[in-house]
Write a protein that binds this DNA or RNA. Sequence first.
DNA 1: CTGAAAGCGCTTACAG
DNA 2: CTGAAAGCGCTTACAG
Lengths: 346, 346
Amino acid sequence: MKKINSNDIARLAGVSRSTVSRVINGYSNVPDETREKVMKVIKEHHYYPQLSGQLLTGMTTKTIGLFWFGPSTIARDPLTSSYFMHIIDAATQRGYLVLSCVLENLTDKKNINYVRKIFMEGRIDAGIFVGVNNNEPLIDELVEADKIVGLFDYFHENEESPNKLSVNFDPASAEQTVDYLYSLGHRKIAIIDGDFTRRSCVQRHESYLRGMMKHNLPIKNKWQAYGGIYQSTGYIAAKEMLSACMDDLPTAICANNDPVAFGVYKACAELGLRVPEDISVVGNDGHPNARHASPPLTTSEFNFREMFFSLTNRVIDTIEEKENVPSTEFIPSVFVERESCRPVEN
Amino acid sequence: MKKINSNDIARLAGVSRSTVSRVINGYSNVPDETREKVMKVIKEHHYYPQLSGQLLTGMTTKTIGLFWFGPSTIARDPLTSSYFMHIIDAATQRGYLVLSCVLENLTDKKNINYVRKIFMEGRIDAGIFVGVNNNEPLIDELVEADKIVGLFDYFHENEESPNKLSVNFDPASAEQTVDYLYSLGHRKIAIIDGDFTRRSCVQRHESYLRGMMKHNLPIKNKWQAYGGIYQSTGYIAAKEMLSACMDDLPTAICANNDPVAFGVYKACAELGLRVPEDISVVGNDGHPNARHASPPLTTSEFNFREMFFSLTNRVIDTIEEKENVPSTEFIPSVFVERESCRPVEN
DNA sequence: CTGAAAGCGCTTACAG
DNA sequence: CTGAAAGCGCTTACAG
């Protein structure tokens, strides 16, 4: 049994292919009678227009690529894996499909070519990138080639382009954290920084500095460390930093994100420091585990669903050539006070 | 600047489109000199053959669909979300892309049409289904229409088809669990069952019965309950079952899976029953959290990576028309003894 | 309101 | 080893 095509439908319905196409694409200038006649034949023969033919006439794929960079163990993390769902949910609501690619990094020549090929061969209408370093050359190359690109937590030095959309974290969250700690009486506030190839980590560092300067608090090298973005790396950084200043400990630590804060918890426990009795800790993100950590973690909570819906919807708006699509959005945080901090005497 | 096509490349390289196509598709009957000449032009002009054209000539999409049914909160669960990564990893290794669809269920008419359309319009070469009820009519319909379908934990009554591939859990894991509990002296062994629309849950129930009968142990209604597949539902079932038989408690509980076992933990705690001092609990799956539960959960551990690699690879083998692809595979479990059970006097 | 025709970009027999 | 031609399935101006 040969597969049926629009020609067959046209013949069976006694119309031309043009009319079949008009019915399928919902053109208004088709009388109800004709429409029903054609639809009946389509239904009866379980006809579906082939994407291959449609694409060739310039229709879009209704597919967006999701390019995800990081160790594939990220799937274990409930926050990170929720990104996936948010993007898929948002795309599905707009009638788009998601092609997912997970790669270790975007520095490997092989991976760059892989991503480039997916864009260039016309599989997708746009791509969303998660976990890309700032100023990634491929991003600019794609935009240059008129591709639409959505970026999560990304900074680009080059000029803006309507095809380069991004969503970012509220840049003031760390300052709020310092304000909060200051109000509790803390004066010796340390920071465990993230990965400075990510926009948010730079922002959080700068925001911390602003907060410290505003309150005239001492910014000391020994109270700063690079902790990456994972629990494991945060743990190492905190252990090292705290071990080196046991004679003059900070009274509070701002962690780049919640997993790092969990690493700080672990380091503190091993050094015999109780949280919050001996040292206060604040995270960043609003990780699902923050609430259940012991002690429950005080943190700046972000609405990741909102972030990914914003990004995905603006990417799709751009595909659909809507006007005045904002190219960057910053999503505000909500400071959530739990039990990982306590007041300090001065 | 108009986009370049194979015609342009042919002209620029001084050959015919046929030759360009031969070079791109790696045909052997092209002299090195010609090949290099053509490749040079392709590189220079950043030419990528368009999928739309290739598809129309009958080439495959090199894409598999991933159809996932369940609440979108499943992304929060580290085990469930790892399925995604395993499938994507396996597909990527074979040079395939993954189109991911997440839907609440496959009973809604709208969702059925959505999935059907994706198959029929020629977007994908095959589809993998996770979370589908046994004997789902759409599955048979797709196979009937000559589509290739991969199924995780699925049972079908209809005849086998080379286009219907599945991977399933070892059907003897619950029997092993009963053997183990028996060896510890347990004689009153309860079960919290899963969702009988899933093959594994039926298997586990039957396997439990076989174990119980083998050892001549009492099978009592009051020691059986439906607990679903989530922690929340397992908790409710366990609470209800245990509350109803406080005068004649089982000494051990087989949970359909690890999340359900965590629900049992919670129910026990609320009823003042200590695990394992008052009651022993065994799970099923090898959930990442089982190790860190308190007490660490004894369970039948499955290699999910192996399961999804097996399924994905056999699906791709079928797309590529390999011979003798096994249509069903059962992946064995490894019984992992931790601290949730203890010996009992008789 | 509708059809004939052109065209999208590619690959694959076929012929040489 | 290579090219001219046919054909894949569709949509979209264009003309009526």
